[in-house]
Amino acid sequence: MKRTGWWVARLVDRRVETDTSATLVLEVPDWPGHLPGQHVDLRLTAEDGYQAARSYSVSAPADGDRIEVTVQRVPDGEVSPYLLDGLSVGDRIEVRGPVGGYFVWRLTDPAPVLLVGGGSGVAPLMAMIRARREAGSRTPFRLIYSVRSERDIYFADELRRRVRDDQSLDVAYVYTREVPEGLSAQAHRIGVPDLNSHGWPAQLEPVNFVCGPTGFVEAVSDILVALGHEPRRIKTERFGPTG
């Protein structure tokens, strides 16, 4: 069954992820479900009828009629500051989706999975990690997560717990500005050594999901191609500041 058009959702919870981001929990009556990696459009309407819409990745599997959307604040943005500061629990907002059927991990695909996230690009990848666990799948997953500093890690406690409890989930961090104390690595942008050490060899024919800002996705997908991965097995989602 396919529903189109805008649906009315209600904000039921908002969880802070970092200083500049939060997860909105929305209740959408009769939500039809979604696949990990899909996104939704959220729309705001001013009192005079002016409207603004933006696309956001869904960061968790559906829990009945509840969906979770993780929002990064775009400084001076039009929509994200309102979603983070203006919208109150109980307020209504319009949602459309789920959208996108390509940047999607399917439970039935037995191939090992590499997830490469830059900054807030981790949100749809987290939906895949959570969906895998929820389904009891043992498909091996690796996440390489590029962040400016430790303070910028989304879902930090949950990722730590999941890695501890799950032998077939690995997470490696790349710090671009500030390396946590006690680690010997230098701050750097993601490169061949990171993908070589923490990704899968091309012969295993993994599926690679890459999500982040344009420059990040260009760099990572070029490296994966150079490392021998079939371009069709590299799925990308690029975003710029969209307000």
Binding site: W6, V8, R43, L44, T45, A46, E47, G49, Y50, Q51, A52, E78, Y82, G86, L87, D91, R92, I93, E94, G243
Partner: peptide, 14 residues
Amino acid sequence: MGIVSPGFQGRRRP
């Protein structure tokens, strides 16, 4: 017209 978000102004760019 959609659901009005109280206090939402939008940026009203051109």
